[in-house]
Amino acid sequence: MVEGSIDLSVFNELQDATGSNFIKELVETFMEEAPGILAELKSATTTGDLDQFRRAAHSIKSNANVFGAHELAELARQMELSGLGSDQDATNKEIAALDASYERSAVDLKDLIDG
């Protein structure tokens, strides 16, 4: 069962295991932290910091997996695996897709915790 960008089997299992108050807090934390991580990813593309790029993509992937945001996780995973390439246009497209996917996930997650 999928609600928008979120796999509900993952989300509900997490909610059952940890409690609805906790998951609300966790989603809010994710939405506070994620923009910063996305900003690090972008700054890594301008400074050419390969480690920072990989680490930021890894963090997005890891957090997206927690909530069952599969699409976001997969986009981040692709970036983690391929690393920061020299094709600036391609990287910009990847980042735009990642941003958009994050926005969708954030909206859906907010809906889920607001019931």
């Binding site: 295991a17 940890t18 966790l26 934390t29 991580i37 680490r55 890891s62 957090n63």
Partner: peptide, 16 residues
Amino acid sequence: DDTKVNRMLLTRNVEM
């Protein structure tokens, strides 16, 4: 763990 979400979740897991 470097991400706050993971620290919170793991903390919750082990505390439970």
